[in-house]
């Protein structure tokens, strides 16, 4: 058993976070040394019976030093906040070209779906050097997707999508854990993340059983559930046309303007009366209970895929 003191570093973020972590180690280590050193020094020098000088404290010590270290601690705290905060802001947005993988968590397994339809359970294959964006949801309780080697963690919630992204930098196998307590077999809910060279990833993905891709399945559902009956461009019903809606600003009947992101599309399927588009009657029925989480992902993926067609 090797005695590692530092976890494997296998993503772009991991290198940045390790830099911050090292900085914090140095700063806090110095403070700890200062406090422990002073404690020891005073305990030895001013123990009962020594001849060290005692008497009154110098005036500057009583006022200026107190104010001084209050200010110094505050500035140090602000500096650390600035460092951590800027790092967080820089890393927050996934690049637009990121590979999008859908993850569904349930007690007690992870299910992943790649863009070409390849599926895996308690495992995730990703290409090295490419940004990977995970769009995640849970079928039951809150879980948390955690890969220590990437230094990333994100809670996975029922009833909404959460996202995280990373750019793997080193091939190999890394552990995947569920980090949010999720019931009986929480400690068994994990797997392996395999980082492969991009060409290996491409051949791995192609070798998986080819199913229809996510947007393709969404399109089938779109018809099967009757969405197309109203929302198709040629429909006689007065309903918003969905071509190109994803990512656009939408004006609502109550005067608000919202961006049609994944959360908006998802809410509009489940609670259509909430955000009615200006100029349309609130006639759409709710699909809550008719579609499960996986179906919702398929439908939203289909709507996203319509983005390009509007431009044509």
């Amino acid at each position: 058993m090797s005695l590692a003191l530092w976890p494997a570093t296998a993503s772009e973020q991991a290198a940045h976070i390790d830099g911050l972590f090292t900085g914090l180690l140095v700063v806090t280590g110095l403070i700890l040394l200062l406090v422990a050193g002073l404690l020891l020094l005073f305990c030895i020098r001013y123990r009962r019976g020594t001849q060290a000088k005692r008497g009154d404290l110098p005036e500057f010590l009583r006022r200026d030093v107190e104010l001084g270290w209050t200010a110094a601690t505050l500035f140090l705290a602000l500096f650390l906040f600035w460092w951590a905060g800027t790092l967080e802001l820089r890393a927050s947005m996934a690049p637009p070209e990121a590979l999008e993988i859908h993850v569904v968590a349930k007690q007690w397994m992870w299910k992943a779906r790649h863009p070409n339809g390849a599926r895996e359970i308690d495992a995730l294959h990703v290409p090295r050097g490419e940004a990977v964006r995970l769009v995640m949801t849970s079928q039951d309780v809150i879980h948390s997707f955690y890969v220590p080697a990437f230094r990333v963690k994100q809670d996975v919630l029922p009833g909404r999508f959460t996202e995280m992204w990373f750019r793997p930098t080193r091939t190999g196998e890394y552990r995947l854990f569920c980090a949010e307590f999720c019931g009986t077999q929480h400690s068994r809910m994990g797997g392996m993340v395999t980082v492969m060279e991009p060409e290996d990833y491409a051949s791995w993905a192609a070798a998986q059983p080819q199913e229809q891709d996510l947007p393709g399945e969404g399109e089938a559902l779109f018809t099967a559930l009757g969405c197309a009956g109203c929302h198709a461009p040629a429909s006689a019903v007065h309903a918003p046309v969905l071509q190109g809606v994803y990512g656009r600003m939408v004006h609502l009947a109550d005067g608000r303007t919202v961006r049609a992101d994944q959360a908006y599309l998802r809410d509009s399927i489940l609670q259509p009366q909430r955000d009615v588009v200006a100029g349309y009657a609130p006639i759409m029925p709710s699909f809550a209970g008719l579609v499960d989480e996986a179906d919702l992902q398929r439908l939203v993926a289909y709507l996203q895929s319509l983005r390009g067609e509007a431009a044509r």
Binding site: L39, F42, L57, L61, T73, A77, F81, G85
Partner: peptide, 30 residues
Amino acid sequence: FSFLSFVVAVPSAIKVFNWTSTLYRGQIVF
């Protein structure tokens, strides 16, 4: 919340420094 958490660290640090300084020029028994 990160900002406020850093801010709340300051008074705790003051307390540690002040306890340590109380030992200065004391007559310490263990």
